[in-house]
């Protein structure tokens, strides 16, 4: 029986939602093709996730625990995933597309001489490999791609699939790991105050665009996000002006988010931005330009002045709490 291996990424003691989405879709694909579903976990304490992983149907869990995985460094993650791939010998390896996996996917592809389908919007197994759709040309169109080979690596955009449980009892295999002497050294991690909530995992995102203009506007965004417990996002325009940190950038060159609720505030809706948020479940747009393209995709669109609407909205939401 061939193996479908899913890399389950963790952050701050929690499995990332985007990884559970991939695991859920992988399970249905593995079942159709009679494959064994396995998971790979790499963490300071990888076995603590076993209960949750088996509840999503992974029958074998390959776990590597080591203190080096407290932080991300491509060399150590590549070494760990390579060790698991050599042990599990999967024919398909899938993971959620994040900055961490984008940092290692090409290297794994090159060292295993594998086919790689990065950042796909959907995929399915076929008789001779994998077929997948990828957004290309600044996310204006989808390309239909195929991959063949003994090992195919896939990364999946967040929000592409719903996560769904299907419990089994998994066999946990702890894999010994001794970090190599890496040439690259992680010196420090710089985090800004706005990163209290992990943007790419957030259930609610409040995103600011050019219409937010200044510090007064930014304060309104911060107030709204606080009452909602939301992460703050931004379009490239307000990151370039320095009003919001680069970490907040959503879009083709920034992060891809897929929350339950997305507020696009003063964002016109250029494709470079919407490429990063189109998978959101409910989109609220607030913009004074009634013709802004964002209204074409918003679930609820408010045409009006954000400087008047946001204080009232924050106040109303605060009353509900």
């Amino acid at each position: 029986m061939s193996t479908f291996l899913v890399f389950v990424a963790t952050s701050d003691g929690k499995i990332k939602r985007s990884s559970l989405e991939v695991l859920s879709h992988a399970r249905s694909q593995a079942e159709k093709r009679g494959m064994l579903l396995a998971a790979a976990v790499v963490d300071t304490d990888a076995t603590r996730y076993s209960d949750e992983i088996q509840s999503y149907g992974a029958k074998t869990i390959y776990a590597i625990s080591n203190p080096v995985f407290k932080t991300h460094l491509n060399a150590s993650l590549i070494q760990a995933l390579s060790t698991i791939i050599e042990t599990a010998k999967p024919s398909i390896f899938a993971c959620a597309s994040t900055e961490a996996t984008k940092d290692v996917l090409g290297a794994l592809g090159a060292s295993f001489n594998a086919a790689v389908l990065p950042d796909v919007a959907s995929f399915e197994l076929t008789d001779n490999g994998v077929s997948a759709l990828r957004p290309v040309m600044a996310a204006k169109v989808l390309s239909q791609n195929t991959a063949t080979g003994d090992l195919i690596l896939i990364s999946v955009r967040s929000g592409s699939y719903d996560s769904a449980k299907s419990p089994v009892t998994a066999e946990v295999k702890n894999i010994g790991f001794q970090p190599s002497d890496f040439a690259a050294v992680l010196r420090e991690i710089l985090t800004s105050a706005g990163e209290k909530v992990d943007l790419s995992e957030a259930q609610v995102v409040v995103a600011a665009g050019r219409g937010v203009k200044d510090e007064v506007g930014r304060k309104l965004i911060e107030d709204l996000s606080e009452v909602l417990g939301a992460a703050i996002g931004a379009s490239r325009a307000v990151v370039e002006t320095g009003l919001f940190p680069a970490t907040a950038q959503i879009g083709q060159t920034g992060k891809v988010v897929s929350p339950q609720l997305y507020f696009a505030i003063g964002i016109s809706g250029a494709v470079q931005h919407t490429a990063g948020m189109a998978n959101s479940k409910v989109i609220v747009a607030i913009n004074k330009d009634a013709d802004a393209p964002i209204f074409q995709m918003a679930t609820y669109g408010l045409v009006g002045d954000l400087f008047k609407i946001l204080p009232l909205l924050t106040e109303e939401l605060r009353k509900l709490k």
Binding site: L142, Q144, T146, G149, Y300, I309
Partner: peptide
């Protein structure tokens, strides 16, 4: 090992409801 076979349009989201009015009414 990978091939692009064809291209198609990005599926568009259905536009939802759009409201115009004074701020209080919109928020409600």
């Amino acid at each position: 090992k990978t091939n692009t076979q064809s291209y198609k349009n990005m599926p568009a989201r259905e536009p939802g409801k759009k409201f115009d009015g004074d701020a209080e009414e919109l928020v409600g």
